[in-house]
Structure formats: C-alpha cells, structure tokens
Simulated scan of single mutants.
Amino acid sequence: MNDTKALGDIARFVRRLQWALVALATGWLVWLMGPILTPFVVAALLGWLGDPLVDRLERAGRSRNLSVILVFALMALLLALSLLILMPMLQRQVATLVQSLPHYRDWFAETAVPWLEQRTRLELSTWLDPEYLIEQLRVHWERAGGFATTALGYLSRSGFAVFAMVANVVLIPVLTFFFLRDWDVFVERAASLVPRDHLPVVSRLAEESSEMLGGFLRGQFTVMLVLGAMYGIGLWAIGLDLGLLIGIVAGLLTFVPYLGPASGLIFGVIAALVQYGDWKHVAGVLAVFGIGQVIESYWLTPKLVGDRIGLHPVAVIFAVLAGGQLFGFLGMLLALPVAAVANVLLRYAHERYTQSRLYAGRAPAIVVPAERATESGIVIVGDDVEDDGEGEDKA
C-alpha cells in the first residue's frame, strides 16, 4: 500500500515537472519570437473583440463571410476616420511643441531650477551649464565614442526596423480578417484538444476569462476615448496651445490606472506655467482633470467597465510593467489577458481550496455528556464515543 502511494506521488510530481518545463519553454519561445508575434497578437485581440458582433449578425440571418466583411469594414472605417481626424491635429500639435521647446528650456533653466535649488539646497544649475556639459563630454570621450558607435550601428540597422514595422502594419489587417472569419474554428479545435474529463471545467474558466477581459477591454477603450476628448477639449478651452496633445496622451495613458490623469495633470500644469505663468490657468488645468476624474469615477468606469477584470489597480500596473520588462511591447499587449486568466484561475483555486478537507478539516466529533451517554447506551472508550446498539432499542 505504501509503495503504491509512493509511486503515485512520484508520478504526480513528474507530471507537474513536465508541465512546468512546458511553461518555461513556451515563455522562452515567446521571448525569442516577440517581434514576429506582435502583429499576430494584435490581430488576435481585434478578431476576438469583433467576434461577438460577427456572431450576432450571423444569428440575424446573414452568412459568416458577409458578417465578417461588415464587421471588418466597420473596424477599418473607424480607424480611417480616427486617422483622418487625429493625424492633422496631432501634426499641428507636434509642430507647436517643437516651436515651443526653447520657451520650455528657458523656463526650466530660469524658473524651475532656481526654485528647486532654493528649496533643496542643491546645485542643479551646474549640471545644465553648456560649458560644463562640454567638459564632461571631453573627459568621458571614450564612453561617448562607444555610445556613438552603438547609436550608429543601430541607425545602420534602422532600415530593417522600418521595413519590419511596415510589414507589421500591412499584416495586421490581413491577419485580423482571417481571425474574424475563423475564430469559431480556432476555438473548436482548441476545445477538441482538452481532455474530456476536464472539458466542463476548462470551458467554464475560458468563458469567464473571455467575458471578464472582453468587457474590460471594450469598456476601457471607450473610457480612453471619452477622457482623451474631454481632457483635450477642456485644456484647449482654457487656452493651452498644447492642450489637445496633452489631453490625447492623458486619455491613452488612462489604460494604466492613475498614470493617465497624473501625467496629464503634470504636463498641463507645466504647459500653463510656461505659456501664461499665472495661477489662474493652473487652476483651470486642475479643474479640467478634477472634473474628468469625477466623471470617470462615478459614471464612466462604473457604467462601462465596472469590476469586470477584478484586479486591483496596483496589480494592473505591475502586470503591464512586468510584461514590458520581460517581453517588450508584446508583453505589454499580453499583460492584461494573462492577468485576467490568472485571476480566474486563482478564483477557481480558492473555490476548490475552500471546499477541500485541508480548509474545512475533519468532521467535528459529537461531544456527549457522560450521564446522557450512559442513559443512551453509548459506550465511552478513551476520547471517542461508540454506540453499543442498545440505545436505539431503549429509545
């Protein structure tokens, strides 16, 4: 009996070790093929987000191909309209930023640095002196030369980088169309590989992960658009030349909790101080982001996002940063899907744990007083109780 139990434990350990090795090998391959996998991951996310609308059109009586064409055309139209509206606007804002850089430099050197020096007692202006910087460059010429060599080597490879970026841009719409068309086929083939004994549990977890993450991404994307427009229009209304650019950046960064409004607030305050130098416009910037945060907290996020992903903002920030550190841009794309699936698995593990004997323990023994045990015919042996069979007859 003991030998059989020991062999079972060894077999269980070997199976777990095999799964761990498979997971490590998969992570290593993803890390190696990150640049190649990026367009496939983006297209898969777009296909997954568009598949519910395709299924809805199918249920309305349209064919799968026609439904895919309609959804794909809608996505392409929205993207084209966004580019047509945003690109000229962003181009003008970037040109304004380039023209304003000398003013920001002067403000930083003549206002911000003296203010910081006065309160921190640190000699910060020395590090910003051009003569001092040239002297440091001359002293560390070898290091600068090595850096220049590295930069030139990167620039010499930039042609391939540009070609790869263009190839990815071309691949994404093509791959998105095929993911939209064959998404149900991919799901069925993946389900056919699951062991039959585990199919109900895996199907339940997959549905929960899909509903949670799909609702979160759709809602969060809408929140990003609304807040970006709100911040941009608000900052433009109070007179900031870079208001639209700051608002759009703040809206996009809203995907990471607290990073969007914090960065937008900092950039907006600096822009107001450089452009106007008074506290009236700074108060306007604070009002814009304050109103935006109230609307997001009490209306946008509860209505559009809710608590669908079930992750704390700190966990979301950690997932995005950890994914970017481990796998670059691909890791940032995969961070939230992986975090959502991990959260569903942790909830399932918690559910199983609370139903296990390890959590509940053994069934509590029935404690019967000695007098009542004697009257009922229960024989007390040590700390246990035992019925001699006569208690029921006497009752």
Rank of each mutant, 00 (worst) to 15 (best):
residue 242 L to N: 11
residue 244 L to G: 00
residue 389 G to Y: 04
residue 194 V to T: 11
residue 389 G to I: 06
residue 289 F to L: 15
residue 308 R to I: 00
residue 286 L to W: 04
residue 51 D to R: 02
residue 241 D to G: 08
residue 287 A to T: 14
residue 266 I to Q: 05
residue 365 A to R: 12
residue 341 V to R: 11
residue 300 L to F: 00
residue 144 A to T: 10
residue 98 V to D: 09
residue 30 V to W: 01
residue 264 G to N: 05
residue 263 S to Q: 10
residue 393 D to R: 13
residue 353 Y to P: 08
residue 253 L to H: 00
residue 197 D to W: 06
residue 212 M to S: 15
residue 253 L to G: 00
residue 63 S to F: 01
residue 319 A to Q: 07
residue 12 R to K: 13
residue 326 L to T: 12
residue 88 P to K: 02
residue 10 I to H: 07
residue 284 G to Y: 04
residue 47 G to L: 05
residue 296 E to C: 09
residue 95 A to R: 10
residue 279 W to P: 01
residue 112 A to N: 02
residue 331 G to V: 00
residue 98 V to N: 09
residue 128 L to I: 09
residue 301 T to D: 10
residue 77 L to A: 15
residue 351 E to A: 11
residue 121 R to D: 14
residue 265 L to T: 11
residue 17 L to D: 12
residue 215 G to S: 13
residue 225 L to A: 14
residue 13 F to L: 13
residue 109 A to Y: 06
residue 41 V to Y: 03
residue 134 I to E: 15
residue 235 L to C: 04
residue 101 L to D: 05
residue 323 G to Q: 10
residue 356 S to L: 07
residue 393 D to A: 12
residue 219 G to C: 07
residue 282 V to H: 00
residue 371 E to Y: 04
residue 373 A to S: 11
residue 277 G to S: 12
residue 345 L to F: 15
residue 388 D to L: 05
residue 12 R to L: 10
residue 13 F to N: 14
residue 192 S to A: 15
residue 90 L to C: 01
residue 233 I to G: 03
residue 341 V to D: 12
residue 162 V to G: 02
residue 311 L to K: 01
residue 309 I to Y: 10
residue 238 I to D: 13
residue 375 E to W: 02
residue 364 P to L: 10
residue 147 F to Q: 11
residue 71 V to A: 03
residue 263 S to E: 09
residue 217 L to Q: 04
residue 380 I to P: 09
residue 59 R to H: 04
residue 283 A to R: 15
residue 164 A to Y: 01
residue 291 I to K: 01
residue 170 V to N: 02
residue 394 K to I: 14
residue 260 G to V: 08
residue 214 G to T: 03
residue 120 T to D: 08
residue 225 L to F: 15
residue 304 L to E: 08
residue 305 V to N: 10
residue 140 H to A: 10
residue 362 R to A: 12
residue 310 G to R: 05
residue 89 M to A: 13
residue 260 G to W: 03
residue 235 L to D: 02
residue 266 I to D: 05
residue 267 F to K: 06
residue 329 F to E: 13
residue 55 D to M: 09
residue 78 L to R: 05
residue 273 L to E: 13
residue 249 V to C: 11
residue 334 L to W: 03
residue 82 S to T: 15
residue 33 M to F: 14
residue 84 L to C: 06
residue 245 L to D: 01
residue 373 A to C: 08
residue 387 D to Q: 09
residue 342 A to P: 03
residue 208 E to I: 06
